[in-house]
Structure formats: structure tokens, C-alpha cells
Design a binder for these strands. Structure first.
Length: 815
RNA sequence: GCCGAAGUGGCGGAAUUGGUAGACGCGCUGGACUCAAAAUCCAGUGGCCUUCGGGUCGUGUGGGUUCGAUUCCCACCUUCGGCACCA
């Protein structure tokens, strides 16, 4: 007898080869005007991987989720765009080149080849004809072009400012890449350095990034909340304080203009440009300079941990509302990056100002009082801004409720030209320069005569030259590429130097989803008609760790491109699903902890279908989950059971019984459950359980005439999860090509069994369970319940007060 | 400190609209098959009590609403995530 047991190692490569041969999942773009444009089409996308060379379980979860959605939609009659590519620039390859030698490009391309092979071994239904990689000149040529477009409209600019510097990676970092004062990538404590760098003016889009969240109906609320927090919009006012005895005006931002009468001192950030001028030639000059110098050497973490320090400048400002003079201090609890780098300090109503006032003996004046009760602002700041609070000690504004006080004071100040309403954001412009090699060259040159000159579009791409030394030295390794460095100024033809910094890799991934729509276009980054057809992405799937960084940058890019007329939509991702992370040994998987789980050994042992099934069976996909080795034993065992059950059923006659059997009803219920879970609920673990139940049911009643239909249903429903075994079994059931087969439909009338277990409660407690007909009327159910001997015993001698009947479920008798 | 999510058997989890708590899977126990093992199949599996009929407790804790609460309301505890010297 031939061994016909389930052997994934035989069937999986066979089907994968067939899919590749037939380009089963390729979806070409129709030519404009073709009728196919009218067909239902959808774009399912997962975040593209960084090609580290080895697929890990996080990727498996991500792409299997996308696979289930894509298969499901295709079988429901949609043309599904489902591409794949590589976010191939970035530090790991460069660091590997430093450590082990070789070129980052070679290392990256070797890794891409490996990860591609592993992805294909997982059997994901991807349109491989659209594959892209961000490190290729064919791609980054257009990244450069987009940079030039943003430069042209003023959204890209250079400025000198205080920046986050990672001493380990020897490069600047965007604000978003600093976590708890440390480098998000390597964990080194971030320093502040003043440097001239390239930025994208994302702050211009702060309002749009908030307002247009309306277009993101299907985004998880927590992602939106994180982005809202990050953007940090606050409403308030900008007020102007005049430095006493000068013409110098110092604006401040405050969210509490109603506390203006309580401003008892004034504070400048150490980096504030006017500090030097204010103290020049004064007795305090030396002390202030010393303090500023000391503050600069402190890391963000140190600044936050220590007690509030500062120095008096010897200068005063005039409070615009009452003409009072108050002292100007310099203290590093005021940040240059936020607001105007200067504050009016109201110690009675701000904790930080309060702490500072206490340690430096500055006055504390209460100007806000709760409607009821007393507060002692000398011992503790009263920071509440309840709408019931009223202003006190505020001249003609006293007694006004707080919100009205805010309005009145702003109105008064704007009437005299000393203040106005203002909205401030926590969001900073996106720092995009990196002093590293393995990234997209920034296409500008520096000319002695003409300054910063963009490289003309027709000269793109500015190719990344090969260099031999990648060791970070605080400037880009590109500065050592002598021949490459020199260029002609496109404007005057004179000597020019190329920009040696490269772009943050988040720039590369801020538009890749558009390029997928038209990946081979060599004339332009994309054809707008094609892009507008596919975009926005209907379902985007990726890790929650990108809630702010990638997702906000991509949103910004899309809005900017829309304003430039290059795309016809405002948001890139209509729906977003964020998967939870896979943990192992109680912690996030990470190389440094050595707890990264790779799918490969499991694929070799159990096959890709078992791995795919297991990763989604572990629990709700949006939650974190712990990888456990014995789980896959279970799913693999299930596939073996499915295999035997279906092969047995394949022996049974193919004709369908006339009357619906219990197994046929069960099959219809399972179709309804799986369809609803995938489509509406976005639940991916419970459909697997439902199919398992169906298979168990088949094994319990192998003589039911509906067995073959039930088996076919099980195979068809499990196909998005385990496509190889499903194809194989489908074929053995006498069909072909399940992946093109329509998704099974269910018959509404078969969703209920003919009989059900009636739960009989007395006073809300379950006392009996009886078999009842699904058609029984309420009265019949009550009668049935009351006929139960156990119920009769309980009701004896008691008065029935109330009867509750839930059709097809229960009867509750209240006595 | 502020905002958000979550707490259910030995474990991962299910219960979708307030209606049988623990589906499905793992693990464990017993049995079948086998010379034996693996694989597979069958049965059992929340705690306590039990005269083996059943009783009783049970979804983080304490209250409340309801005939009935894992589900709704209030307070609290714990864990995780985000933000945090942002004026």
C-alpha cells in the first residue's frame, strides 16, 4: 500500500511551483479605458520588511494576515493588488559591512534573495511581478525626485538647530526616533548638537493630520490617540513682554492667558538667541554664560531628572496687562524647541514654575480660585482649570469665570497689539538628513556662488557611489568619495560639492505603496490614473510599533503629494489593522535578547501551512502573543486529521442529499461564522476553531449523507489559512484550483438546527436542559419546561410570578 | 501625573445584541491498537461537597441595575501600552 499520509514537504513545493508558473496572484494593470477598470478592485497591503536576511515570526503573522484577507477578497470576486518589496536602505547592512567587510549593497542583496526565498516557501499569494526594493536606483531615483518636488514648494528646507545626536550611530535622529532620551535603534543616550540639517515641514500639516483623521474610519482608536498625543495640539495665546528699558519684545506662548496677573517672573531657555544680548556687559553676564554652557552639556535625561536650576539675568520685563516689572531668569526647564523658548512663569498655577519659585525665593500670587473651598498656593500649585474656577487679584478681570477670563484677556491684549490667540504643537519638523552611507543620496549640490542648488530632474538619479570605509566619524562616509563629491553647479556651471548626507529611510517607505501601483514606470514615479485607481490602500496591516513614525510620515507625504496634484487622495491607508507583537520567553523578540523565533525550523518540520495556521490560531491578531512550541503540534495534528477526514469523505458519493442533514446545517453555520469573522469582525483565530469543530463533527457522524459536502466546505474555508493542503485536498475531491473558486455561500434557512437544547432556569439558575423543536412556540416551550420533573419539584408549593422566554434559547421561571 | 487597553481553568484563548461560562487547541488522566514504541483513535478533565441523583462556589476586588451580568453602571486593585519640564 502506498503511504498516503499528510506530507507537507511534498505538496507545498509542488503547489508553490504551480502558482509561480501560472503567475496565479499577479494582477496586471489594465490599460486606461479598458472595461476591467470598472471591476471591483481592492488593494491589500502589509508593511514591507527590512531585509535582515531571516524571516521572523512577526513577519509570518503580518503576511499571513494579509494573505487571509487577500485570498478571502479574491474569492469574493475582487481583483486584489497584493505586492511585496524591501525597505532595503538602513543601518544594519552598513554596520554589518563595518564589522564583517563587504559592501552594504552586496550584503543587502544577498539578504533580499534569502528573505524572498523564505517568503515564497511560506506560500503567500503575492504579485511578485511588482516587487520593488528601495535601495535600487530605479526606486530611489524617484525618492530623489519627490524630495526635489518638496524642495520646490518649500516643504523641504535646511536650518541650523539643536538636534538629537546619537553618539553610537554617529548620526542625527528625528524626534520620533528618540525614546526616553535614548536612540530608538541602539539605545545610546542621545545628545544635543547644533547642526545645519535638512527638514520636511511636517508641522505645516499638523492641522490636516488631525482633522483628516475623519477619513480614517477603520483605524484603531489607540493609533489615532498616539498620533494625537504626538502632534500635541494646544490652544492658547501668544503674548508679548517688553524688556524693561529696551525696545526688545519677548513673545511667550501660554495656554493659560487667564493667569497673566499671576506671572511673577519670566524664564528664557538657555539656548534662547537673546540671552547673550540681554546680559552683555552686565554684572550677571559671567554667571549666565557659565550656566548656559553647563546646560548645553547636559543630556535630555539629566535635564529632566535634576531639580530646577537657573540664574537671574539682572533684567526685567513688563507684564503687558498691569505694567508690573518681573525678573527674567534663564533656566533649562524651558525648552527652546517648544513655543517661543520663553515663558511667563505663574508659580501659583503651574507645578514647574512653583518648584522654581520655591527654590529661588520668587513670589507666588494666586489669581485663580475654585468656586468653593480654599487652596493654599504657597505650598502647592493649583493647576486645575475647571470651568467653575474664577479669576481673582486680576483687576477688572476679577470674578470672571476662567474660560471667559481667557477670552477677555486675549481680546484686551489684541486690542492693544500685545497678544493674540495662538495654537501650538508639540510636533516638530521632520529631520531627514543622516550622516550615514547606506541611504538615498540627497540630490542637491553646494555651489560657492549659487549656494544650495537642486540637481536637475533629468540628471537623476544621483547614484550612491561605492566607498571603502563606512566607519562613522560624525560626517557621512560619502564625504570620502572624492570623484563623486565634485560636481558642476547646474546653475552657473562652476565648481560645486555634492550633499554628503543621505535621507532618513523613513522617506523611502513614505511612498512605496504608491510605487507598487506602477512599479516598472521609467518615465515618471507613477501614472496618476493607475494610482488613483488602486489607492488608497483598502486594508493596511502592520505592527503597532509603527503607530507614529511610519504611519504619520506616510500620511504627511500623501497630503503633500495631493497638494502638489500628483495624487487624487488625501490619506494613503483607508483601513488599518495593527497586529500585536510576538513575544518569546516573556519578552519582545530581539536580537540582543537572543529570543528571536524564526519560522524556518518549524517549516522544515511541520510545513508552511501548519506555521501559518498556528500563528493565527494563537489568539486575537491585534494582541501580543507568546510563541510556544507545543502550539504548533496541535495545529499540525489538526491538518493531519483534516487530511484523513477529507480523504475518507472523498470515497463517499458526490451527490448531495435532498433533505438537509445535521452535518449540512453545521457546514452552513460554519460558512456563516467564518465569513462574518474574517469580513466584519477581523477575527482570525475563531474561524480556525470553527473549521476544527466542523471536522470533529464530520468524524462524529461519518455516515451522515452530508459528509462530502461538509468536507468540501471545511477545505474551502481553510484555504486562506492553509492554501497548500487545501488545494491538494480540493483536487483529490475531484475539483481543481480552489484559489479561483468562489467563496462558499450559506443558506440562511439552514443556520439553525431542527432541534435545540432548551435551558430551563428557575429564578435565573439553570435547573434542566431539554431537547426542543426549533419551531416550538413560546407557549409550547413553557409547557415543556414545566413538564420537567426537576422543575415540578422546585415549583411545588410556590407561586409562579413571572415567565421569561427567549426563543431558541431558554425559559426562566420566577417564583 | 494624564490618556488608552486588558484581567476568564494548569496554559493559549471562546462566549458577536444582557440569555447554557470555559467553544477550539495545548497539557494532563484512563483506555484501544502494538511484542513494544511512535502515530492514531475513544473517554474524561474549573474548584469544593456528594448518598453519584445532584448540590454549591466560580470570569481581578467591592458594590449596583436586572428574572438573568464575563457582557451594562459606580468605586478600587493589578498588568501592559502611549504621552510627559510641551508652558
Amino acid at each position: 500500500m502506498v503511504d498516503d499520509s499528510y506530507n507537507p514537504h511534498e505538496i507545498e513545493p509542488r503547489w508553490q511551483a504551480l502558482w509561480a508558473d501560472e503567475r496565479a496572484f499577479s494582477v496586471p494593470n489594465p490599460s486606461p479605458g479598458e472595461p476591467e477598470w470598472d471591476e471591483r478592485s481592492t488593494y491589500v497591503l502589509e508593511m514591507l520588511p527590512y531585509p535582515s536576511g531571516e524571516l521572523h515570526m512577526g513577519h509570518v503573522k503580518n503576511y499571513t494576515l494579509g494573505d487571509v484577507v487577500a485570498h478571502f477578497r479574491r474569492r469574493n470576486g475582487w481583483r486584489v493588488l497584493r505586492p511585496m518589496g524591501y525597505d532595503a536602505f538602513g543601518l544594519p547592512a552598513e554596520n554589518a559591512a563595518i564589522k564583517e567587510g563587504g559592501q552594504p549593497r552586496e550584503i543587502t542583496e544577498r539578504n533580499i534573495a534569502r528573505i524572498r526565498e523564505q517568503m515564497q516557501r511560506m506560500g503567500w499569494a503575492i504579485d511578485w511581478d511588482r516587487e520593488i526594493s528601495t535601495h535600487t536606483p530605479e526606486y530611489y531615483r524617484w525618492t530623489q525626485l519627490l524630495f526635489l518636488k518638496l524642495l520646490e514648494c518649500g516643504l523641504a528646507y535646511r536650518k541650523e538647530s539643536l538636534q538629537n545626536w546619537c553618539p553610537n550611530d554617529q548620526t542625527v535622529l528625528a524626534n520620533e526616533q528618540v525614546v526616553d532620551g535614548c536612540c530608538e535603534r541602539c539605545g545610546a543616550e542621545v545628545e544635543k548638537r547644533s547642526l545645519e540639517q535638512w527638514f520636511f515641514r511636517i508641522t505645516d500639516y499638523a492641522e490636516a493630520l488631525l482633522d483628516e483623521m475623519e477619513l480614517l474610519e477603520h483605524w484603531p482608536e489607540r493609533v489615532l490617540t498616539m498620533q494625537r498625543n504626538w502632534i500635541g495640539r494646544s490652544e492658547g495665546a501668544e503674548l508679548v513682554f517688553r524688556v524693561e528699558g529696551t525696545e526688545i519684545d519677548l513673545p511667550v506662548f501660554t495656554t493659560r492667558p487667564d493667569t497673566l496677573f499671576g506671572a511673577t517672573f519670566f524664564v528664557l531657555a538657555p539656548e534662547h538667541p537673546l540671552v547673550t544680548e540681554l546680559v552683555a556687559g552686565r554684572p550677571e553676564e559671567e554667571a549666565v554664560r557659565a550656566y548656559v554652557k553647563q546646560a548645553q552639556t547636559r543630556s535630555t535625561i539629566e535635564r529632566e531628572e535634576k531639580a530646577k536650576e537657573g540664574v537671574f539675568t539682572g533684567r526685567n520685563v513688563i507684564n503687558p496687562v498691569n505694567g508690573k516689572r518681573i525678573q527674567i531668569w534663564v533656566a533649562d526647564y524651558v525648552l527652546m524647541e517648544y513655543g517661543t523658548g520663553a515663558i511667563m512663569a505663574v508659580p501659583a498655577h503651574d507645578e514647574r514654575d512653583h518648584a522654581f519659585a520655591l527654590s529661588h525665593g520668587l513670589p507666588i500670587v494666586q489669581v485663580i480660585a475654585p468656586q468653593q473651598g480654599e487652596v493654599d498656593v504657597q505650598s502647592e500649585a493649583y493647576v486645575s482649570s475647571s470651568i467653575d474656577d474664577v479669576l481673582i487679584n486680576s483687576s477688572e478681570f476679577s470674578r470672571l469665570p476662567s474660560p471667559e477670563g481667557k477670552r477677555s484677556i486675549i481680546n484686551w491684549l489684541s486690542a492693544v497689539g500685545l497678544g493674540e490667540k495662538k495654537v501650538s504643537y508639540r510636533l516638530r519638523d521632520w529631520l531627514i538628513s543622516r550622516q550615514r552611507y547606506w541611504g538615498c543620496p540627497i540630490p542637491v549640490v553646494y555651489c560657492e556662488h549659487c549656494g544650495v542648488v537642486p540637481v536637475p530632474e533629468e540628471e537623476l538619479p544621483v547614484l550612491l557611489p561605492e566607498v571603502s570605509d563606512f566607519l562613522p566619524k560624525g560626517r557621512s562616509p560619502l564625504a570620502t568619495a572624492e570623484g563623486w563629491l565634485q560636481a558642476k553647479c547646474p546653475s552657473c556651471g562652476g565648481e560645486a560639492r555634492r550633499e554628503t548626507d543621505t535621507l532618513d529611510t523613513f522617506v523611502d517607505s513614505s511612498w512605496y505603496f504608491i510605487r507598487y501601483c506602477d512599479p516598472q514606470n521609467t518615465a515618471e514615479p507613477w501614472n496618476r490614473e493607475i494610482v488613483d485607481h488602486w489607492m488608497p490602500v483598502d486594508q493596511y496591516i502592520g505592527g503597532i510599533e509603527h503607530a507614529i513614525l511610519h504611519l504619520m510620515y506616510a500620511r504627511f507625504f500623501t497630503k503633500a503629494l495631493n497638494d502638489l496634484g500628483m495624487v487624487g487622495f488625501r490619506e494613503p491607508f483607508a483601513r488599518l489593522f495593527t497586529q500585536g507583537m510576538i513575544h518569546h520567553l516573556g519578552a519582545k523578540m530581539s536580537k540582543s535578547k537572543g529570543n528571536v523565533v524564526m519560522p524556518n525550523p518549524y517549516v522544515e518540520r511541520y510545513g508552511a501551512d501548519a506555521v501559518r495556521l498556528n500563528i493565527l490560531f494563537m489568539g486575537p491578531a491585534d494582541q501580543d502573543a507568546e510563541w510556544q512550541d507545543n502550539g504548533i503540534e496541535g495545529t499540525s495534528r489538526f491538518l493531519g486529521r483534516l487530511w484523513r477526514t477529507v480523504l475518507d469523505a472523498a470515497e463517499k458519493p458526490a451527490r448531495k442529499p435532498k433533505a438537509p442533514t445535521s452535518l449540512i446545517r453545521k457546514a452552513h453555520q460554519t460558512i456563516a461564522k467564518v465569513t462574518d469573522d474574517i469580513d466584519r469582525r477581523f477575527a482570525f483565530n475563531t474561524p480556525i476553531a470553527a473549521v476544527m469543530e466542523l471536522v470533529n463533527e464530520i468524524n462524529r457522524g461519518p455516515d451522515d449523507p452530508g459528509v462530502r459536502f461538509a468536507a468540501e466546505t471545511a477545505v474551502s474555508l481553510i484555504q486562506p489559512y492553509a492554501p497548500h493542503i487545501a488545494e491538494e485536498l480540493w483536487q483529490r475531491l475531484g475539483h481543481e484550483r480552489l484559489w479561483c473558486e468562489p467563496w462558499p455561500a450559506y443558506d440562511e434557512s439552514l443556520l439553525e438546527q431542527e432541534t435545540f437544547e432548551l435551558v430551563v432556569q428557575v429564578n435565573g439558575k439553570v435547573r434542566d436542559r431539554l431537547l426542543a423543536s426549533a419551531e416550538a412556540s413560546k407557549e409550547e416551550l413553557v409547557e415543556l419546561a414545566r413538564s420537567s420533573p426537576r422543575v415540578i419539584a422546585l415549583l411545588e408549593g410556590r407561586e409562579l410570578r413571572k415567565t421569561i422566554v427567549v426563543p431558541r434559547k431558554l425559559v426562566n421561571l420566577v417564583v
